[in-house]
Write a protein that binds this DNA or RNA. Structure first.
Lengths: 240, 240
DNA sequence: CTAGTGTCATATGTCTTATAAAAGACACAA
DNA sequence: TTGTGTCTTTTATAAGACATATGACACTAG
């Protein structure tokens, strides 16, 4: 029978809005046009625009403020950070996090990374290796791989001098906003190098976390591999 | 200023629907009354009922089928199982899972369990210890704690003879439906007993997973502690 | 001059109504 | 017996009217 080529009006509107987000026409933190403006622009009712925006809000791409407007979501907000960094302390409130850059280099995509990011093996990449220190405690050792073409002007000093989440830097300086991510977790034993950096004995059990992050339209644009020391922190997961 | 004691109509309807779900008036898998019926019952428009049900559907408490009706969500469906058991094989499709009951007994709540489940230490509990075997491979060793009062007639044979998820048994036999859960993950080294059951050497790195499950209205009703062997399986987590 | 208060413009939120589309049951015909 | 049209019931979509929240700004009492 006929393929599901039909799309209701509000979804077509949503697609148009998504395109404006993706293209960067509306920047993170800024307000998008009002529902009424969009309604008259697209020649539909406010309610239809509303339903389109409702779905974008449900996907955390925008957020609404009654009386003020609808705003493009951003990684600058505190709240968003905890959605992507899922470690919480066993007791007490999460404290400050210090990010120590260990290595920054340009390299070629391995077959594994290329497959994850839908690139070709050998494509230019940026690789970042760093240590996250909570208070005095080194907790996360991770490696971040990014497509070199998307992050052309990225430098070691930009990364090491940046305060706040990497995703914040990416969206403000490179116009690439991470929208969601998928993680795969395993338990692993610390090797010599990792143990030294995390301040544990070799063989110490660690959480091995592999992440693929996606920007708009489910396009994968980042691959990470991290080792988490879970002696005083745990990984939060919600099932629902 | 006045406290936020105001609640829009659709939320009041939602609360009424929730109460029908909680009380068991509408059973898992069954259809709830049509939007029109509910609208005339509560003397509001279909759209208002609709918005109430929208929120319930977003919380996975019910699901809609155009042309058929709206149904109470259930743990019987395959789809729901993967929301609560987040292990996936490194490659291939997930196979059959065998559940081996190791221990079943009634006991008193420890201070720790009591705190998690909002009970008093010493309250009667049911404790289940079991092994999940994927194919031939023992992968999960876990301990489940339940309030004895809620699960009065629960027996070892009911558990060991039941096919399918425990949550399925709970909802069909005891009218308690698990709606969501929170997990805390750490890496741990296998002890002697655990290693033997999971078929690894003592000291082998394992995923330690602690879960609190909630029924309607965020009432906690189950506490679990599991050890996951992640040699051939990984824990899936979505950030978004 | 200043602190408070009222008013207005504009934004999202709520609610209703009308109509469309999906699903299944059933009658009927080839 | 098998398909096909049609009717009923259900959720889905769309539009419009009205409510509420917010912030800016003007006005006024002190």
């Amino acid at each position: 029978m006929g393929s599901p080529t039909f799309s209701p009006l509000y979804r077509q509107i949503k697609a148009l809005l998504l395109e404006s987000l993706r293209s960067g026409a509306w920047r993170p933190g800024e307000a998008i046009p009002s529902e009424m403006d969009l309604a008259s622009l697209y020649k539909v009712s406010q309610g239809t625009v509303r339903k389109a925006i409702d779905e974008l809000a449900a996907e955390n791409l925008v957020y609404r403020r009654q009386g003020k407007g609808t705003f493009v979501a951003t990684h600058g907000e505190r709240q968003v950070r905890f959605r992507f960094l899922r470690l919480a302390p066993d007791s007490g409130e999460p404290g400050a996090v210090e990010r120590r850059l260990l290595e920054f280099r340009r390299a070629r995509a391995s077959a594994e990374v290329a497959r994850m990011l839908e690139l070709k093996a050998g494509d230019p990449m940026v690789m970042i290796r760093r240590l996250l220190v909570f208070g005095e405690d080194p907790v996360v050792l991770e490696e971040v791989w990014l497509p070199g073409t998307l992050f052309k002007g990225l430098t070691a000093s930009a990364v090491s001098e940046h305060r706040g989440a990497l995703y914040n830097l990416f969206e403000t300086q490179f116009g690439t906003r991470m929208v969601r991510a998928e993680e795969k977790l395993k338990a692993a034993a610390a090797d010599e190098a990792g143990a030294a950096l995390l301040g544990v004995e070799p063989g110490h059990p660690l959480l091995a976390v592999e992440r693929v992050s996606y920007t708009y339209s489910d396009k994968p644009v980042e691959w990470r591999r991290g080792l988490y020391k879970t002696d005083h922190y745990f990984y939060r997961s919600e099932l629902g």
